[in-house]
Amino acid sequence: MQIFATFEYTNLLEIAITELEEKGVSSIYAVPLEPCKKEPRLLDGMNRADGMSFIDKGMILAFMFATVGASKGFVWAWGPVIWGMIGAGAGFLAGLVWSWAIYLVHNRRNKSRIKKGKRGEVILIVTCEADQHAVVEDILWDHRALGLAKTT
């Protein structure tokens, strides 16, 4: 039986491997994964999206500002249509600036975390007997495995 587990590369992983060896499990294979070093693309394509959008806040604020501009435009000099369009443009730009600021803050925070020494994850493959799988699973979960899967 094989048990696959993912860990962050910490001392707990080393302790888990040592504990497994003490329990008589000798077939342990660890594969370190390297973190992504490439910057994500700023704009999403049609088939690839990361859930971050720059225009959603802009569209919402454009609607809100256009509504206020059009309603105030009945009193102001240029009329409701012109002030509605000015409000829509100003709201859209405000939303873009807001989204861009959030992106820059989020990106700066992630870069600092990577620079501080964020390590990659490790896949641990343990081959054991069927009667040992419960002990192996308990050891892996006790040492903060991120995920676990088993095959027979």
Score class of each variant (00 low, 15 high):
residue 22 E to T: 08
residue 24 G to M: 08
residue 27 S to A: 11
residue 29 Y to C: 06
residue 31 V to H: 08
residue 31 V to W: 03
residue 34 E to C: 01
residue 40 P to N: 10
residue 41 R to Q: 13
residue 44 D to I: 04
residue 44 D to M: 09
residue 44 D to V: 03
residue 45 G to Y: 04
residue 46 M to A: 09
residue 48 R to N: 09
residue 49 A to T: 07
residue 53 S to W: 01
residue 53 S to G: 05
residue 54 F to H: 02
residue 54 F to W: 00
residue 57 K to W: 04
residue 58 G to W: 00
residue 58 G to H: 01
residue 59 M to Q: 07
residue 62 A to M: 07
residue 66 A to M: 10
residue 70 A to M: 13
residue 71 S to A: 14
residue 73 G to P: 01
residue 74 F to N: 10
residue 77 A to L: 15
residue 78 W to P: 05
residue 78 W to S: 12
residue 78 W to A: 14
residue 79 G to H: 10
residue 80 P to T: 14
residue 82 I to T: 12
residue 83 W to Y: 14
residue 84 G to Y: 03
residue 85 M to L: 15
residue 85 M to T: 11
residue 87 G to Q: 06
residue 88 A to H: 01
residue 90 A to E: 10
residue 91 G to M: 03
residue 93 L to A: 08
residue 95 G to Q: 00
residue 95 G to W: 01
residue 96 L to N: 02
residue 98 W to Q: 15
residue 100 W to D: 03
residue 100 W to I: 04
residue 101 A to N: 13
residue 101 A to T: 12
residue 101 A to H: 06
residue 102 I to W: 04
residue 103 Y to M: 05
residue 104 L to D: 09
residue 104 L to N: 13
residue 105 V to I: 11
residue 107 N to V: 03
residue 107 N to T: 15
residue 107 N to Y: 06
residue 108 R to A: 14
residue 109 R to S: 13
residue 109 R to P: 01
residue 111 K to D: 15
residue 112 S to E: 15
residue 113 R to C: 04
residue 114 I to R: 13
residue 116 K to L: 15
residue 116 K to V: 03
